[in-house]
Design a protein around this nucleic acid. Structure first.
Lengths: 250, 250
DNA sequence: GTTAAAATTTGATCAGGATCAATTTGGACG
DNA sequence: CGTCCAAATTGATCCTGATCAAATTTTAAC
C-alpha cells in the first residue's frame, strides 16, 4: 500500500501522555491531581487514526473500552430492528464515547469517525479498578454519565416540543459553545457532520434542514457554504431556539 | 391535623431493611452479596410516604440523594426556560430516581409521585463512599446509568421516527414487561399516569393519545377504561411498535 | 482534467397530528 | 347524593414538515 515507506509503520505507542495533551482540562484528566495522573496514563492507550467514515466500533463489537476523542469528531447511532438509524450524539475532542455501553457485553451503539479522527482508549475494566481507588475520578465518571443523561433529556424535549427552526438553531448554538470551550471560534466553524446527519439527529428530513439553512441565511442569521458556517446573529439564534440553556448533546 | 392520633406520628425509622424487601432482586441490593448488604442498609434511609401529586424534589432542591421507588410510581420532568414541561421518565418500584442529577448542586429534574408512593433514600455522598469500597456496587451503578442513557436514546428514536400509534404501543408494551418483571400482570394493569402525562412523555397532544386508545380498542388490541388497561393482543401491539426490543424508559 | 457518484438545494404536493371547540365522563368532597 | 372541577373523548379544520421529483453542486476516483 505505502510503497514509499521502506518499513512497516512503527507500532502505536501503548501509553498516551495526558501530561502533554492540550485537552487535559476538558477530558478525564481534569478530575485527577498531578500524582494520580500517572495512574490514568498507565491505563490509557493511544488509539489509531480513523479516516472519515471508518467505524470505531459497532453494535456487534464486544464492549471493552470507552474512547476519548483527541482530534476530529465522532458520531454515535443506534439501529432499530427494522434497520432505521438514529444518531444519538456528536462528540468533539475531549468528550468521552461509550458511556451508554457500560452495561451488556456489546456496545450499545455504533461509533463512526466524521472526519480524520484520533482517539484515546480507556479499557473499562482497568478504568473501574482505577475509579475504585480514586474517588475523585469515580465522582467525575458519575458526573459525566449524569450529564449525558441530562443532555439526552434535553434532546428529548427538543424533539418533542420544538419546531425545525428551533431545533437547528439549538444545534448550531450547541456546537458554537462547544467549539468555543475548545478555544476555537464559536462564530465561524466547520460543521463536522453532513446535512443528512443533522436531519437524522434532529428528527427531520434532509430537505427541511436544507430549507431552514437557506431561510436562516436569507434572514441574515448565518452564512453557510457547504459545511462552513458563520453565525452572524447569535442573539437572534438564541431567540429562535428559545431554550436549551445547556447544550443539546455532550 | 390528625385529631384522631393522640401522639405525634412515630419518627420514621432511619434504617430500611433491604433484607426483607421484596424488591431486593430488582433494586440496588441485587449487586451486593449477603455480607455487604448491611453496609448498604447502613446508608439507606426509609423515606416518607408521598401522596399523589406530591413533589419529592424539584429543580430548586439541592442535590443530596438518589431515591428508589418502594411502592407506587414516580414521574420526572424538566422545565424549559419558557415554562414548557417535558416528562423524562416514569419510575416503578425498584427503579432508581435521580441518576440524571449526579452533577451539579441541584436536582436536574422534578420528581412527583403519580400515586401514593413510598421511597428509600440513598444519600449520594455515602453512596459514593460505598461504591468505592464495593467494586460490584460501583459496577452496578455504572450499569444503571448506562442503561438510563440507552433508554433515553431509545426514546429519542421513538420520537424522531415513529408515529403516534407506534409510540403508544411501545409505551404500553414497556409498562407491560416492567410490571411483569415485578410479578404483576403484564396483561391487565392500571396505568400509573394520566393521558396527559402519556402525551407529554411521547411528544403528542392529549387528543391524539385519546384517539389512538380508542382506535386500538376498536381494533381489539386493548381494552381501556380510564386508567385500567388490558392488552388483548400483544403480538399485534408488537407489530405496531415494530421495534424497541428494550424498553422505552427505565 | 474528466467523469461518476454523492450531497445539497429547490419546488410541488400531501398527510399526520396539532389546534380549536364542544361534550361527556369521572372523581373528590361537602 | 348531588355539585363542581378536572380529565378524557370526539369532531372539524389547519399547518408544519414529510415525501416525491428534479436540478445543481460538491466530492471522489481515475
Amino acid at each position: 500500500m505505502s510503497k514509499t515507506l521502506p518499513f512497516r509503520q512503527a507500532p502505536i505507542p501503548l501509553k498516551a501522555s495526558c501530561h502533554t495533551c492540550s485537552l487535559s482540562k476538558l477530558c478525564l484528566p481534569l478530575a485527577v491531581n498531578e500524582t494520580d495522573l500517572e495512574s490514568l496514563e498507565d491505563i490509557v492507550q493511544q488509539g489509531r487514526i480513523y479516516n472519515r467514515g471508518e467505524h470505531i466500533f459497532d453494535q456487534s463489537t464486544s464492549f471493552r473500552s470507552c474512547f476519548a476523542v483527541r482530534s476530529g469528531a465522532v458520531k454515535t447511532s443506534i439501529v432499530s430492528e427494522d434497520g432505521e438509524e438514529q444518531i444519538t450524539g456528536f462528540f468533539l475532542p475531549g468528550e468521552l464515547v461509550g458511556l451508554d455501553s457500560m452495561s451488556g457485553d456489546f456496545y450499545a451503539c455504533t461509533a463512526k469517525a466524521l472526519e480524520r479522527t484520533s482517539i484515546c482508549e480507556f479499557p473499562v475494566q482497568k478504568l473501574e479498578e482505577l475509579t475504585s481507588r480514586l474517588p475523585d475520578l469515580q465522582h467525575h465518571m458519575y458526573q459525566l454519565m449524569s450529564q449525558e443523561i441530562q443532555h439526552s433529556h434535553q434532546l428529548t424535549m427538543l424533539l418533542s416540543k420544538n419546531t425545525a427552526e428551533e431545533r437547528i438553531a439549538a444545534l448550531l448554538l450547541s456546537l458554537s459553545s462547544r467549539f468555543q470551550r475548545r478555544r476555537l471560534s464559536g462564530i465561524r466553524f466547520s460543521l463536522p457532520m453532513a446535512r443528512n446527519d443533522i436531519a437524522n439527529f434532529l428528527g427531520l428530513a434532509v430537505e427541511t434542514v436544507s430549507r431552514v439553512f437557506t431561510r436562516f441565511q436569507n434572514q441574515g442569521l448565518i452564512r453557510a457554504r457547504g459545511r462552513e458556517v458563520e453565525l452572524l446573529d447569535i442573539p437572534a439564534l438564541q431567540g429562535v431556539s428559545r431554550e436549551l440553556s445547556r447544550q443539546v448533546c455532550p
